[in-house]
Nucleic acid binder design. Structure first.
Lengths: 232, 232
DNA sequence: GAAGGAAGTTGAACGTGTTCAACTTCCGAG
DNA sequence: CTCGGAAGTTGAACACGTTCAACTTCCTTC
């Protein structure tokens, strides 16, 4: 089992291996980069890399953590000038793309993990909760800082919903082959006002039951795994 | 490269290998089942399995094809008694779950492929188009056979949209650990009327621009890969 | 400063998916 | 019937992710 609590030297070593790995992933792609190559390039043994990272996939997890951290740092500043929900959320997502863009080629691997419920690396897994919560917290700030009126009943679940939207954007981004992720940018610019618009609609009477049902659905089905599993 | 056009004997052999593989996948799970084990159990050599299937993942693709075929066969009959869009679509999706349920444990692998844009096995890939079209055709029948009034502007893209919803259900199903996929069943029963409701809403003036925008979005972004890639 | 245990480090070895050069079987043309 | 090439078949060999028993370095305690 890889190291839990760390000494300064251990931290350095770990960072060295991670940095080397990300560099090679970026240069040669995920599949083409072997653990042996990472170890050699970093000047350590294969076994040593495994001392710090339980598997090759865990290096991807570390990448996701790092991207999330940088996103959290930068997104708040990027949103600050904006007041509408649409604009703030667009800024939020654009920041994510900014941060992740250098790694688009190998981000596929991350999405693959995302989708495997058995993997502890899935963003849905308990192990990823801290990182996930960090991202959702940013989305919460996007909502809170806006002047757009949001039904309080909806507001509570909104960040989770926005996170799902975020994951959808990530999925599109992984497929996006356009230079500079231009098409993903377009998608963000066009969906953000739509999302805001849909939320705004929640005040109309006709759609009220629909929203209530959707809200219940989210509560029933999106609770993280275990808690939700054993309701009658 | 695996065989393209087949002799009767080759077909038999191929089917033998595929059946054996699916049986072992079902019994032991995808990861635990080795190509060596499949070959041994089928009474052929490892190399021979690769003569008929380019990779282990291609066996999963074959599974997807088979499930799709059975779904297409059964879904039309299942939908026939129903007239509303909601009921017809629910029947449609329930049939898919019926057919796929025995393989839920290893379907994860299919979803993993689904998400890798580079894999020719992705349901989004050109290689999978025939199978994908078959499924979408079923969804088209679900719409056509219903008495629910659908705006013609929307109707054209509706099957594609329903396919996306379908993929969403599949994703949930893969995560679903409840016996008999009960929770997935619930999800289908509850989302189908919602989808129908949303479609019904398209007749209201307030939401008209929103729908138009959504429609444009789908046309711009959901076109299969290459065609869409090079628009200015 | 010596002892002893914890943390760190090593690379050979294992099991896996996949490849490939060599072999065998099949079948149609002459 | 026989020849030749196409189709089918084989299993040893390869590259990879991963494991682990053995070794070394570091730090704490007395």
């Amino acid at each position: 089992m890889p190291v839990e609590n760390t000494t300064p030297r251990g931290d350095e070593r770990k960072a060295l291996i991670l940095d080397t790995a990300l560099r090679l992933f970026e240069r040669d792609g995920y599949e083409k980069t072997t653990m042996r190559a990472i170890a050699k390039e970093a000047g350590v043994s294969v076994g040593n890399a495994y001392y710090y990272f339980a598997s090759k996939d865990h290096l991807v997890q570390a990448f996701y953590d790092e991207v999330s951290d940088r996103h959290a740092e930068q997104a708040l500043a990027a949103m600050r000038p904006h007041r509408t929900l649409a604009a703030r959320f667009a800024a939020d997502l654009h920041t994510w793309v900014d941060v992740a863009e250098p790694y688009r080629e190998f981000a596929t691997q991350f999405v693959k993990n995302a989708v495997d419920p058995n993997s502890p690396l899935s963003p849905f897994s308990p192990e990823s909760k801290p990182t996930r919560d960090k991202v959702i917290e940013v989305h919460r700030r996007a909502v809170q800082g806006s002047t757009t009126k949001v039904d309080p009943e909806i507001a509570a679940n909104l960040p989770d919903l926005l996170w799902m939207h975020h994951m959808g954007i990530v999925l599109f981004w992984v497929y996006d082959r356009s230079p500079g992720a231009r098409r993903t940018r377009d998608l963000i610019d066009r969906t953000s006002p739509m999302v805001a618009r849909v939320i705004g609609l929640s005040r109309f009477k006709v759609v009220r039951p629909l929203f209530r049902e959707a809200d219940k659905l989210i509560q029933d089905f999106l609770l993280t795994g275990d808690e939700a599993a054993d309701k009658s």
